[in-house]
């Protein structure tokens, strides 16, 4: 039976599929893999004598289908003490959680620092996470596109309503000499101003909402949001563009109003 010392906080990040009946052990406890628990006939609350040290079974892992099922886990310090290997590490697993992390360089660097340890990159974990991240990104882009489409429709309907409501106003403008192009430009200018304000507000509201949501999606306290001027400019430009596109038809409708009919609506 293999006894492994692990850093449980990191283990949860490297093995998010772990489900424990009980809880993670402290320095006087152990966590049993499902198969190890069955073979040893031990469950939560039982004790195990390991090289003369009495260790409490704090929890049992649910079956994972991996080698973890046959392992007894303890904290790194406890395992080193029990096995008489204080200060020594025999294996390090490296998982990079970013898309472009140079994982091979990281493995080489850690191997250099721990020459007696076997350092391995958990590529499949990274790959799986990257795929998940990719799917999530696609979903986010799709959702954004949908939100933009709905936003565009809202702008269209609002501007149509505004043009209808202001028919008489446009009639007055035309009666005093405004041309079709003047009226179209006027409507588009108003739409651009409103969209620009909406873009700026939307960006900062999004930033604020993300800031509020981060603690619910990450365990790290070091994650912070940075103002990205390129993204801000992109959002601003997209909002103005969307506003102008959605207002094009109402603007043309306003420009094509018959001034005589428009004045009659008063």
């Amino acid at each position: 039976m293999l006894l492994a010392g692990v850093d449980f906080q990191v283990a949860y990040i490297l093995r998010p599929w772990w489900k424990i009946k009980g809880h993670a052990p402290d320095k006087d406890g152990i966590l049993l893999g499902a198969e190890a628990s069955r073979i040893l006939g031990l469950g939560q609350g039982d004790n195990l004598d390991a090289n003369g040290r009495n260790l409490l079974v704090a929890g049992v892992l649910e079956p994972t289908g991996s080698q973890d099922d046959q392992i007894i886990f303890a904290t790194l310090a406890t395992a080193q003490q029990v096995l008489g290997k204080e200060g020594r590490i025999s294996m390090a697993e490296v998982a990079a959680l970013c898309a472009a992390c140079p994982i091979d360089d990281m493995v080489a660097q850690i191997s250099g620092a721990l020459p007696d340890a076997k350092v391995m990159a958990i590529r499949q974990v990274v790959k799986g996470r990257m795929e998940t991240l990719g799917h999530f990104n696609k979903f986010a882009y799709g959702l954004s596109l949908l939100v933009m489409l709905v936003g565009g429709l809202v702008v269209l309907v609002t501007m149509m309503g505004s043009v209808r409501e202001r028919t008489s106003e446009f009639g007055i403008f035309m009666a005093i000499g405004f041309r079709r192009s003047h009226v179209i430009r006027m409507v588009l200018f108003e739409a651009a101003i409103i969209s620009a304000i909406a873009g700026v507000l939307g960006y900062f509201m999004g930033l604020g909402a993300t800031g509020l949501a981060i603690p619910f999606f990450t365990e790290s306290v070091d994650v912070s949001l940075a103002f990205d001027p390129v993204l801000a400019l992109g959002v601003f430009a997209a909002a103005v563009f969307l506003g102008l596109i959605a207002s094009a038809y109402p603007a043309i409708m306003a420009g094509n109003l018959d001034p005589n009919e428009a004045l009659r609506s008063l």
Binding site: M174, G177, R180
Partner: peptide, 13 residues
């Protein structure tokens, strides 16, 4: 044309 009529309204009327 419509635009010229608008110009007429602006300049004459």
């Amino acid at each position: 044309g419509l635009d010229q009529r608008a110009k007429f309204r602006m300049e004459f009327l």
